[in-house]
Design a protein around this nucleic acid. Structure first.
Lengths: 344, 344
DNA sequence: CTGAAAGCGCTTACAG
DNA sequence: CTGAAAGCGCTTACAG
């Protein structure tokens, strides 16, 4: 069944399509026509249930009211939360969100996803990319694409400041008197290629503070498989090991660690990804407060044509995750500070 | 920047747009033109990186390669998994997925979401609706909309068979010798209005098997707030109560219950929503294996124009969740049986 | 075997 | 203050 067209509305209101278009969608539509005409058009539109055909409008004007997101597997609560943040932000602006779960590392699938989105003539495409390798021109050519993710070095995009986050984490541990630190993460394969970067930063940060070399504990498993994390953690905690506190990479890993923690040794756990799953976790573990809503807000702004936003995306932008302890998280006071020097 | 157009490709290949169109996208394109012509067009397209402008194609043909999904909050792992299943199914068909997290119960927002999707001229819209109230004609008018969800009674759509699931659950408990059953769920407000239906079915099923009246334990909280579930569960398990086994409604509720279960009394827990979070849970709790992939497959098929699929959506279709215990889940043998009598 | 034309629904100059 | 025309990129009859 075909939707109502502008032509039908115009016919019903006894005016020309042009008139109907101007009244219903035109920027100066409200003032351009006589009261009677406008009323007639609006009433006809309401009665018939007219909705503008976006693709047609898009075709004519070149604009679009849909944004694409290419990111990770939604079974990973982190990405679920990220996508939810984008969806909320976009719907506030009456924009649509089109998603694909393909990871940027899977070049073939990623390329295909981009082509599909390109075909939709989307306004722009936001994609998760921790590595920040340069995409082939063939892909980005004539398509506005904005990378987001964690990063530890200046580049275009909207970013969570990885180095800051690691620094905060180490400071958190030091403040509490922990010196023997551990790093708990899924294996370097898979969705989160930047684990290596996190580890490196963690090590150098520890070194800088004169802490002993941290321990790396890696497990096999998808980033959403809590049992994989828990079973590795169980082994880890059974063997005598001197680690006093773990920095966990990803929320599921952290929760696996917490679940396994029923032994004599009870290392502290800091959740690197503070998703709602972590924040509503009974034990109220401390977590890194990732400003995902702010990230979504900025990333979308960077795409929305407001010059400041565009510049923001081009200059690169760092958001600084802060650590919230259980008490703070209870108050629901999510700090979402951004700032610090943006890249030049 | 404007994308490459068919016209540009045609120019590069020294043929007419028509020719380029037929070669690149035409159904009989492959045979209609001479080898040389086709080669020229294909090469030019490849070289320029041509991608068909879907909205324009859509406008011309009336077809669309995008499907909308309106469902629940992605922070709820159930919906994250459901959306992931849809995304995977659609991407197999080179379709795009556009999502909105609005719940059908929020009539105003739902209506707005539908209008937005209608404006995108989507192929169709799939929405989660456990209540199955009839939508106003104004909303569904000239737009293919397919409801999905749990249901206990015949109606159009693609459904998870709620009555069957409850029956299975009670049988599961009886087989293991549990007679004093409990029902653990978030409060009736919010995303999951069908909790009441589940409870009613549960009660009547218990009655039918001569079991004592089951106990209802409801907690306040969003469907993804595990602490809300756990803290209620802690209280529940501290007070002496005779419940031997709980049927939990939603995975987070189940996990909250499991987390709280460190007291003397250790009631059995059956997870009603077998998401990947539950399936990868260290304790390997038994769960209802919801055939979400199959649901997505059927729902999409019901929209894809293949007559059988369409009929399927119109006739209504039940999928029957089965219970998998930890052992089975370990083998990864997810039974995804559908069948049983479909509605007439 | 290939090309010229019409038109999907819309909007933006421009003409009355 | 309102209307007639052109055209966004594409495809589908139809004509050569």
């Amino acid at each position: 069944m075909k939707p109502i067209t502008l032509r039908e509305v115009a016919a019903a209101a006894n005016v020309h399509v042009t008139t109907a278009s101007a009244v219903l969608n035109g920027s100066r539509g409200s003032t351009r026509f006589g009261q009677a005409t406008r009323e007639a058009v609006l009433q006809a539109a309401r009665k018939l249930g007219y909705v503008r055909n976006e693709p047609a409008s898009r075709l004519r004007t070149g604009a679009s009211a849909a944004v694409g997101f290419i990111g990770g597997d939604l079974r990973n609560p982190f990405f679920a939360e990220l996508v939810a943040a984008f969806e909320a932000e976009l719907s506030r602006r009456n924009f649509q969100l089109t998603i694909s779960h393909v990871a940027v590392e899977d070049r073939a699938s990623f390329g295909k996803a981009v082509q599909l989105m390109r075909g939709q003539a989307l306004h722009s495409v936001i994609y998760w990319d921790e590595l920040g390798r340069k995409l082939p021109a063939r892909l980005t050519n004539r398509l506005e694409m904005l990378p987001i993710g964690f990063t530890d070095r200046p580049r275009d995009g909207v970013w969570l400041d990885l180095a800051h986050a690691i620094r905060q984490s180490v400071r958190y541990f030091i403040d509490r008197g922990f010196r023997r630190l551990g790093f708990f993460a899924p294996s370097l394969r898979g969705e989160s290629p930047s684990v290596q970067a996190r580890w490196n930063l963690f090590v150098s940060e520890c070194r800088e503070h004169g802490l002993p070399e941290p321990v790396q504990a890696v497990f096999e498993g998808e980033s959403w498989e809590i049992e994989a994390a828990a079973s590795r953690a169980r082994v880890l905690l059974k063997t005598s090991n001197p680690v006093q506190a773990y920095l966990s990479f990803n929320d599921i890993a952290a929760l696996g660690l917490l679940l396994a923690r029923r032994s004599r040794t009870k290392p502290e756990v800091l959740c690197f990804d503070g998703t709602s799953l972590v924040r509503s976790w009974p034990e109220r573990p401390p977590y890194l407060d990732l400003p995902l809503c702010r990230l979504a807000e900025l990333a979308v702004a960077a795409h929305m044509g407001d010059e400041s936003g565009r510049a923001l995306g081009r200059r690169g932008k760092w958001l600084r995750p802060e650590i919230l302890s259980s008490a703070e998280s209870m108050k629901g006071s999510r700090k979402m500070r951004d700032g610090g020097p943006s890249f030049s």
